Lab assay of single mutants.
Amino acid sequence: MTEYKLVVVGAGGVGKSALTIQLIQNHFVDEYDPTIEDSYRKQVVIDGETCLLDILDTAGQEEYSAMRDQYMRTGEGFLCVFAINNTKSFEDIHHYREQIKRVKDSEDVPMVLVGNKCDLPSRTVDTKQAQDLARSYGIPFIETSAKTRQGVDDAFYTLVREIRKHKEKMSKDGKKKKKKSKTKCVIM
């Protein structure tokens, strides 16, 4: 069974824990209790493949930012979460993405942009803004509501699919490099 290491990042209060708990335990946590770091595991079937999701729910508070490099190193894919009623959390996505790329030393890291709290009427981040940002990053965008469960499975499952595509691409690139290195030079 394939294991996928997913990391949920975003500013404090955007609903990272609520999304994760909704996926794992099928219930909505409405009281806000700032996370330092929590880890969850769940076995699911995605596109006919049974897999184990190892999900790291991270601290959004700035005082825990020193811990970010460590979990970013171990993560295979990242859910970059903002709240649709919090423009600052949307603007912060850029910083999370840049930090992930720096730590992973790669421009090509599996990510999904997630606009959470889409059940709320007080939207300050337009869907088109988020779609445009995701398009500019070359990553999928999904709106979710941890409260109603809308888009929750889709967000995590899409990230797994992005990781699969990335692994497939990397193995193809690896095979191309191996083929090239088999060419021999004969000096007579």
Rank of each mutant, 00 (worst) to 15 (best):
E3K: 04
Y4H: 11
K5G: 07
L6Q: 03
V9P: 04
V9R: 08
G10Q: 02
A11G: 08
V14T: 12
K16R: 00
L19D: 15
L19P: 00
L23C: 10
I24T: 07
I24E: 02
N26A: 12
N26D: 10
H27C: 15
H27T: 13
F28L: 01
F28R: 01
D30G: 08
E31Q: 07
E31H: 03
Y32R: 00
D33M: 02
T35C: 00
S39P: 00
R41A: 04
R41M: 04
V44P: 08
V44N: 15
G48Y: 06
T50A: 09
L53R: 02
I55A: 04
I55R: 00
L56M: 14
L56F: 04
L56S: 07
D57T: 00
T58V: 03
T58A: 03
A59E: 03
Q61L: 08
Q61H: 12
E62D: 09
S65K: 04
A66F: 12
R68E: 15
Q70T: 13
M72S: 07
R73Q: 10
T74C: 10
E76S: 05
L79Y: 12
L79W: 02
C80D: 03
T87A: 13
T87R: 09
F90C: 09
Y96H: 06
R102T: 10
D105M: 15
E107D: 10
V109P: 04
G115F: 13
K117I: 15
P121T: 09
S122T: 10
R123I: 07
V125R: 06
V125T: 08
V125N: 07
D126S: 07
D126H: 07
D126T: 06
K128L: 05
A130E: 10
Q131M: 09
Q131D: 10
D132F: 08
D132S: 05
L133D: 07
L133H: 14
S136Q: 14
S136R: 05
I139T: 08
I139Y: 12
F141N: 07
E143D: 10
T148Y: 06
Q150M: 02
D154W: 05
Y157G: 09
L159C: 08
R161Q: 05
E162Y: 07
E162S: 12
K165W: 10
K165A: 12
K165T: 15
E168M: 14
K169T: 12
K172E: 03
D173E: 09
K175Y: 07
K178T: 09
V186T: 06
M188T: 11
